[in-house]
Amino acid sequence: MIMIFGIPGPLLFGQLLLGLINGAFYAMLSLGLAVIFGMLNIINFAHGALFMMGAFVSWMLLNYIGIGYFPSLILAPILVGIFGIFLERTIISRLYKLDHLYGLLLTFGLSLVIEGLFRNGYGSSGMPYRIPAMLQGATDLGFMFMPNYRGWVVLAAAVVCLATWAIIEKTSLGATLRAATENAPLVQAFGVNVPRLITLTYGGGVALAAFAGVLAAPIYSVNPNMGSNFINTVFAVVVIGGMGSILGSIVTGFGLGVIEGLTKVFYPQASATVVFVVMVIVLLTRPRGLFGKAA
């Protein structure tokens, strides 16, 4: 057995993989938060609840209609995204002229309602979601056994994150989006329908959270609290990364996941708090966040 720093290799790599998986969820969630914040100037506190909804919708699709994992990987984000668009049009858009804190409070209330409704309907014990047959089993990588599904999660998350980055940084739609983030009235003067762009951005960010939820369904059991367990850490990730850059959110998300995984190997007691400790260090040295722009 290979030993690294006195730690058995498979244990180290196993925790690294777990860290990467957590990091994948941090990255997808903080990416969505950053995109929404850039456009709407609202911190979407309902992000965790919508992540949970993604998992629930895929569970419902499977158990009520018999739609399997792969179609629901596309269908669930679309459905939750439409729900998000509905929310943005009916409720959230009323707050744009007010202090940002009201948006935070509103979405916080929204998350309480969504989570409470699901808890009423399905209890809080959680329901299992089977790993699709194609992704069951494990692969021998030489230095460790990797469960196929976990590898798939990391891969899918990385692809989706990079695709989001490419859309925002490399396409003309993304260019319009970035311009509107900088100066919405001017972009509107050029004939771009900015309110629609805002709505689509919210829908997109929400769909990203739902996609993460579907990926998470087979790993964690599908339960109403799965979002709130994650989201507090994700806020710390957002503070660490700063919300200025898309790539920054992705790197910070994955990076912190890995740090958390490594902490589990070397000092397990601190694994739950290490992200917050990093946040404290960042606040002391770079209050704007690692990738944040000056306000």
Binding site: Y102, G109, L112, V113, I114, G116, R119, N120
Partner: peptide, 21 residues
């Protein structure tokens, strides 16, 4: 009423923010 408390609280939250700040 169990989890309905959370739902009510959330709803009050939203109403407060939207209608009477």
């Amino acid at each position: 009423f169990g989890a309905w408390v959370t739902v009510t609280q959330g709803a009050i939250f939203m109403i407060c923010v939207l209608a009477f700040r």
